[in-house]
Simulated assay, not measured.
Amino acid sequence: MMTHGFKSSKQDFTFGPWQVTAVKTHIMKSKDIERLAEEMHMPSLPEMLFGDNVLRIQHSDSFGIQFNAIDALKCVNNLQDSVKVACAQEWQETRADSEHSKEVVKRYDWTYTTDYKGTLLGDNLKFKVTTTDDRIDMEKLKAREQIMFFEDVLLFEDELHDHGVSMVSVKIRVMPTSFFVLMRFFLRVDGVLIRTNDTRLYHETGTNYMLREFSTRESKIANLKNVPPAFYTDPNEIQQYLPMKLLQCEKLEFPDKESESEMTEPERT
């Protein structure tokens, strides 16, 4: 297993009413991972689980959104195998030997596919989430704008017992008048399939909402014969060759402080 030789870091960046916090620290200890696996009723969790890593975007009024590994894993469907491959049975049997799963190996999604889109923050004030036809203007994002802050936070990674890779990471870049987040789940099961679940989040200064797009792209490797194999390991390159299976667009509207105060103040006649 590869080791990440970096020191723990916590970075804060203030952007208008927003504070961006990026925490990068060490892999969870195996005993903590085992305890968490039991709590989540999963036979095992990713080999490299960064349980304390987080990317948080919080407004001065306390509402916001954050991305972390534990919540991402809670969105894994742990009741079914999502990918049937020749190696899956053998792979599960090897995992069954580990001391914390002596009972019959439960069926579960051993690829850790997650449709996590972030965790909304705020007690009284939270984003109002609605579906929308509005789309993030990707052309605008291609414009060369000064990047005031950039961070890339890995949440988890697993080499699927040398049969591929499953990983989730989240990146943010802050420009003078906007910020953009890409959280990507990337799955490659060698000889079988490649899948990405992407969550894109965009906010432009002067608007009272963020746009959030969630997309799933997937292809069997048999259908990627014309694609250079080197691209199979590069999520950015392979992306354009994977057919879109799902697209959900949402507007995250800022909470209305006035309506909250109306609820707490007596009505005047």
Results as ranks from 00 to 15, higher is better:
residue 223 N to M: 12
residue 245 K to I: 10
residue 217 R to A: 11
residue 152 D to G: 08
residue 160 L to W: 02
residue 8 S to E: 08
residue 69 A to C: 10
residue 231 F to Y: 15
residue 78 N to Q: 09
residue 192 V to H: 00
residue 137 D to C: 04
residue 249 C to E: 01
residue 72 A to D: 08
residue 207 T to D: 01
residue 8 S to Y: 01
residue 175 M to S: 08
residue 44 S to G: 01
residue 89 Q to T: 13
residue 265 E to S: 10
residue 245 K to D: 08
residue 22 A to K: 05
residue 143 A to K: 13
residue 34 E to Y: 07
residue 172 I to R: 13
residue 245 K to Q: 15
residue 166 S to D: 05
residue 212 R to Q: 15
residue 151 E to H: 09
residue 47 E to P: 04
residue 120 L to C: 04
residue 87 C to Y: 04
residue 99 E to T: 07
residue 261 S to P: 03
residue 112 Y to A: 03
residue 194 I to E: 05
residue 258 E to N: 15
residue 250 E to G: 02
residue 80 Q to G: 13
residue 114 T to I: 08
residue 242 L to C: 05
residue 143 A to D: 13
residue 183 M to R: 03
residue 186 F to K: 00
residue 149 F to A: 11
residue 84 K to H: 10
residue 12 D to P: 00
residue 178 S to I: 06
residue 79 L to E: 15
residue 129 V to W: 05
residue 87 C to V: 05
residue 180 F to V: 00
residue 115 D to T: 12
residue 208 N to M: 06
residue 138 M to W: 11
residue 43 P to R: 01
residue 230 A to K: 12
residue 73 L to H: 03
residue 116 Y to L: 12
residue 36 L to A: 09
residue 245 K to L: 15
residue 248 Q to N: 05
residue 84 K to Q: 05
residue 139 E to L: 11
residue 146 Q to T: 06
residue 197 N to F: 06
residue 77 N to P: 01
residue 203 H to K: 04
residue 148 M to D: 12
residue 19 Q to F: 03
residue 54 V to F: 07
residue 238 I to F: 00
residue 54 V to A: 06
residue 29 K to V: 09
residue 123 D to N: 10
residue 220 K to W: 11
residue 72 A to H: 04
residue 199 T to H: 04
residue 132 T to R: 01
residue 111 T to P: 09
residue 190 D to G: 02
residue 138 M to G: 03
residue 127 F to Y: 12
residue 220 K to T: 15
residue 112 Y to T: 11
residue 3 T to S: 14
residue 234 D to M: 13
residue 259 S to A: 14
residue 19 Q to R: 15
residue 57 I to V: 12
residue 80 Q to S: 13
residue 213 E to G: 00
residue 46 P to A: 04
residue 70 I to M: 10
residue 209 Y to L: 07
residue 49 L to P: 01
residue 48 M to L: 14
residue 158 D to S: 10
residue 170 V to L: 11
residue 268 R to H: 07
residue 75 C to Q: 13
residue 116 Y to I: 04
residue 250 E to P: 03
residue 244 M to K: 14
residue 219 S to N: 14
residue 23 V to G: 01
residue 17 P to K: 02
residue 26 H to Y: 12
residue 71 D to L: 02
residue 251 K to W: 01
residue 260 E to G: 00
residue 263 M to F: 10
residue 55 L to Q: 06
residue 156 F to P: 02
residue 98 S to I: 10
residue 193 L to E: 07
residue 114 T to N: 07
residue 145 E to G: 09
residue 10 K to W: 07
residue 16 G to V: 04
residue 84 K to A: 15
residue 6 F to A: 05
